[in-house]
Design a protein around this nucleic acid. Structure first.
Length: 576
RNA sequence: GGAGCCGUAGUUCAGCUUGGGUAGAACGCUAGCCUGUCACGCUAGAGGUCGCGAGUUCGAGUCUCGUCGGCUCCGCCA
């Protein structure tokens, strides 16, 4: 007899005989009658047992694995459970087989509202993944992946796998290393991304490539960062920025249509890096929030407002955020914003507002009353480091937009950020470093600045931002050996390190470009999650450990010996 | 590498401010009763190295230091 799924039974199936396999979710034993909520991947259904007929029914525990044969019946009038997809019906059991027993478990699967600590959830991940909310996220992840695969295949893209054992290269993040047994003292590196492989696939004439690629980086973790994450990796030959952008727009449009049943506006708006930094103070603005940041540095030059004037004197900037209707906020509400900017090193927010035709607030003496509309509040920050001012203003923009109810959380809004600088200056070392990666092509009109003023050069580089979250960077690559060597030298990298790649470029490399997008973050956005850990079946903790299996773990001495590796004991910190 | 919060029954948490009695609650678990429950109900019961180590003290779950683990943020992560 074919198996039915619990969550899929409805009034249409009344009187049908069914076979269900799944877990005992919850039992309500009334003595002469036993109700079982049974669960499988599809959801829940209520099974009714007469313990005189089915003796095992009174001996069940949560999470026992059972098979039930019975008949679908409509529930008595007024007893439908609207929370269940199968809530209009129940199954009258004729036969119950216990396929496996579960002992007392460390936490309960069925009480979604009593969530165990994340540590517990990770240690017993198989239980955590049984919880319907987690199961649904895994299903969502699968659907996004499947839709994406089909979409890209339909557009002529081939899925090609690239090595997991790769070569360490000098730029980028810290590599995970794998020692070689055959060649003692040599190491593979786990790939930070398939960047070079996919470019070489273009040289190979693959023309259009994609992969759901695992990317591995040995850096410190965060809620939105895992040591291994999945990237939707795409590369195509003979394309422009526009071609890649169109492809990605179609993909997101499809995802939003199929998953959210919403219409995602395409083409996405395009804004230059310079423009978004000026208008929003960040290179990944959430455009569901209409607020914009302004620059008011000029009016504090030599002004009596000492603190600001001094900052401006030292070459600092003053930026402001104008809030219509914000003048009605209480002092307490305005002062609470100070907490938002303190992490960026600002003592607080300085402000002015117009109420009943009068300007008030610490900043009011330096503002022109005619520039304010009734009810407006202006928040300002000054600082010598434009980066910090922008970060803090961007934070204020988020907080205020949300507080004023300007952000529609249910909507999806995407945009492209273009014309990124190809290089930036490392704040600590003062060195010139690539702002994306070293394989991005410079814009032709900026080539003349390359060696003399590299910071002025813009790249053929574009980011896709969805709801204020950076999902990926794409670019048209450099396919010319000489130009690629120049770029490497500017970044202080010896081209010899990339000789195999440069050779490939010299072998008739087609013009090409592509994009890589963080898939875990995409799933998180569609699932409404802040942490990507919940989108990954078996994630690591913030210290990079796998709590279920206990990894990383020590290995046997002879394993190390075979690899020619000796462990140097960690040096203890001196206490005084 | 740095900062902050957290660690107490199987689970989620209270107790710590101000050191002092047998360390509590809810859910879960065990036994019993119960024929329309759906967070079923009722009765009884079991369950604790207070993360680990050191120190202060007559006395530490409570104070101090160290350490391990979890989370958040900065650095870092093209």
């Amino acid at each position: 007899m074919e198996r039915s799924y619990c969550g899929e039974l409805t009034l249409e199936h009344v009187d049908e005989p069914v076979r269900l396999c799944g877990w005992v979710h919850r039992i309500r034993d009334l003595g002469g009658m036993v109700f079982i909520h049974m669960r499988d991947r599809s959801g829940l259904i209520q099974v009714v047992c007469d313990p005189k007929k089915i003796k095992e029914a009174r001996d069940l525990h949560a999470e026992d694995v059972v098979e039930i044969r019975g008949t679908v019946t409509a529930r008595p009038p007024g007893q439908a459970d609207e929370r269940l997809t199968s809530g209009a019906v129940e199954v009258g059991a004729d036969q119950l087989t216990v396929l496996n027993r579960a002992k007392d478990l460390p936490f309960s699967v069925e009480r979604e509202e009593l969530l165990p600590s994340e540590e517990m959830r990770l240690r017993y991940r198989y239980l955590d993944l049984r919880r319907p909310s987690m199961s649904q996220i895994m299903g969502l992840r699968h659907r996004l992946m499947q839709l994406g695969r089909n979409y890209l295949a339909e557009h002529g893209y081939w899925e090609v796998e690239t090595p997991i054992l790769a070569k360490s290269t000098p730029e980028g993040a810290r590599d995970f290393l794998v020692p070689s047994r055959n060649l003692k003292g040599k190491f593979y590196a786990l790939p930070q991304s398939p960047q070079l492989y996919k470019q070489i696939l273009m040289v190979s004439g693959i023309d259009r490539y994609f992969q759901w690629a695992r990317c591995l980086r040995d850096e410190d973790l965060r809620a939105d960062r895992q040591p291994e994450h999945t990237q939707v990796d795409i590369e195509a030959s003979f394309v422009t920025e526009e071609d890649i952008q169109k492809l990605v727009e179609g993909l997101f449009h499809l995802w939003v249509k199929e998953i959210k049943h919403q219409f995602l506006e395409i083409p996405f708006p395009r804004m230059t890096y310079k423009e978004v930094m000026e208008r929003f103070g960040t290179d990944k603005p959430d455009l569901r929030n209409p607020l914009e940041v302004t620059t008011i540095t000029e009016r504090f030059k030599g002004s009596e407002f000492r603190i600001f004037a001094e900052i401006v004197d030292k070459g600092g900037i003053v930026r402001a955020l104008r809030l219509e209707g914000g003048a009605g906020w209480s002092r307490k509400e305005i002062d609470s914003l100070d907490e938002e900017v303190k992490p960026f090193g600002f003592p607080g927010v300085v402000w002015a507002r117009k109420q009943d035709g009068k300007l008030s607030g610490p900043l009011s003496k330096f503002m022109n009353i005619h520039e304010f509309k009734e009810g407006e509040l202006e928040l300002a920050l000054a600082g010598t480091d434009p980066r910090l001012v922008n970060q803090a203003m961007s934070r204020l923009r988020d907080v205020c937009g949300r507080r004023m109810g300007l952000v529609n959380e249910d909507k999806m809004f995407a945009l492209w950020i273009t014309d990124f600088p190809l290089f930036e200056r490392d704040e600590e070392t003062g060195e010139i470093v690539p702002s994306h990666h070293i394989f991005t092509s410079p814009q032709a009109q900026d080539l003349r600045y390359l060696e003399q003023e590299p910071l002025k050069v813009r790249g053929r580089l574009f980011d896709v931002v969805l709801n204020g979250i950076e999902l990926g960077s794409g670019s048209i690559r450099c396919h010319n050996r000489q130009l690629q060597e120049r770029l490497l030298r500017i970044a202080g990298i010896d081209p010899a390190q990339f000789e195999f790649f440069l050779e490939a470029l010299d072998a008739g490399a087609p013009p090409h470009g592509g994009i890589g997008m963080g898939f875990d973050r995409i799933v998180a956005i569609f699932a409404g999650l802040d942490s990507i850990r919940d989108t990954i079946a078996f994630p690591k903790t913030t210290s990079g450990q796998g709590l279920m299996e206990g990894q990383p773990a020590k290995v046997a001495k002879d394993q190390l010996e075979e690899l020619g590796i000796r462990i140097v004991p960690k040096r203890r910190k001196k206490n005084d």
